[in-house]
């Protein structure tokens, strides 16, 4: 199967500089917010879960895109699902690429996704759970 590269541009801010000594800080968490049609919410939740997002929550909302035209054409279904996922920064770009591809190639699957950086999280275990860091969770 031929994998098409997404045509939609992916806008990225520059990521943090790498430490020249080779020391690595624990990777940061970001909140990924995905807005899609309600009927596709399970599909996208599964997709994001595949990128080791252990915690996701869905809120139902409604879209407000210029609706006069849509109603006229009988396309008035503007019910949306907003998926909040906490995901590790190192998995983020893969996840966004996959999302961009699905937004284009899935029928009725148009949506947007964006990420908001988290400043702090409290609790080591919580952090490990959220970032799916399984290396040191033995104790």
């Amino acid at each position: 199967m031929e994998i098409k590269r997404p045509h939609l541009p992916i806008h990225r801010e520059k990521s943090q500089k790498e430490n020249p000594n080779g020391l690595k800080a624990p990777s940061k968490l970001v909140m990924l917010i995905t807005i899609v049609n309600r009927s596709k919410s399970d599909f996208f939740i599964d997709l994001i879960e595949g990128f080791k997002a252990n915690f996701q929550t869905v809120i139902y909302g409604s879209g407000t895109a210029p609706s006069e035209v849509k109603k006229f054409l009988g396309l008035g279904n503007s019910e949306k699902a907003i998926i909040f996922s906490l995901i590790s920064e190192k998995n983020l770009s893969n996840c966004l690429n996959a999302l961009a591809l699905r937004f284009e190639n899935t029928r009725n699957g148009k949506g947007i996704a964006y990420s908001v950086p988290l400043n702090s999280v409290i609790g080591v275990l919580i952090y490990q759970f959220l970032s799916n860091n399984q290396t040191t969770t033995e104790e």
Partner: peptide, 17 residues
């Protein structure tokens, strides 16, 4: 709130949609 990565927006045709 600031947003670092965005997917799913056409930058050119933004006003149209």
């Amino acid at each position: 709130i600031p947003v670092t990565n965005v997917v799913g927006i056409n930058e050119e045709g933004q006003d149209k949609k």
